[in-house]
Design a protein around this nucleic acid. Sequence first.
DNA 1: ATCGCCTCCTGCGCGC
DNA 2: TGCGCGCAGGAGGCGA
Length: 271
Amino acid sequence: MPELPEVETTKRGIEPHLVGKAISEIVIREKRFRWPIQNCLKKNIQKKIILKISRRSKYILFHLENGCFMIHLGMSGSLRITNAKQEIKKHDHIDIKINKNTILRFNDPRRFGSLLWLGKKPHNHFLLNKLGPEPFNEEFTPDYLFKKSRNRKLPIKNFIMNNNIVVGVGNIYANEALFISGIRPSRKSYKVTKKDFEKLTDAIVKVLKSSIDMGGTTLKDFVNSDGNPGYFQQTLFVYGRDKESCKKCKGEIYLQRIGQRSSFFCKNCQK
DNA sequence: ATCGCCTCCTGCGCGC
DNA sequence: TGCGCGCAGGAGGCGA
């Protein structure tokens, strides 16, 4: 379940193996993804040099001489650097080959992921041009969230998970950040105060950063591994802990469905 | 404009 | 041991 830290860790893990290298071939075993593989993809990326890899939201962007393509891992996708000797496993849908010793292999059981050609102006693409700020960007301030949330009646948890507001906050970290900042997930956005937003912006940045740091510690295993960084082992305060006791007050953690998603909170610590 | 529901898909864990 | 069911989750699309 890639959240922003896993995407960033993936990007950092594959980057040194790919930047400056030419793509010799792309092998597509499966075309059915969230967005189907375009017919133009092969001819646009084969024989081209990867100049740079960047990340926007949960999209990993590959900048070539002639334009840009991007990969989204969806819910179950992973990328790993492997070689031609490694057997093709189930759901290994796409290989981007540099040479026989270096292959970027895209595995995605649920196929909610995607690999899209964007052309020369990637940020004009409809999937990217409405995105809100990155959590680590200076635009992401308590004041920004406060202003955006006025007159918004949706639960604060849905608000911070909306990519048009801020990118990269998935279900796990939305739950964790709201616990840390003492805000109940169901609270209407317009009822969240400026002071609350100060805690919340801090908490979002904190949980994402600490997870990236943890992922970073497993980077050395990225090549030929299953591609899973270690961030998920981090101590979670509330996510997945319904009926268990709160790590702050020893009270009970409750599970509530908000917007079709599991939300975990402590009634005592979050108001 | 805003919000909430539906959908895509596979693997897994549960109850029987 | 096996079957069927429900759930998990990112995020676009759509109807109200």
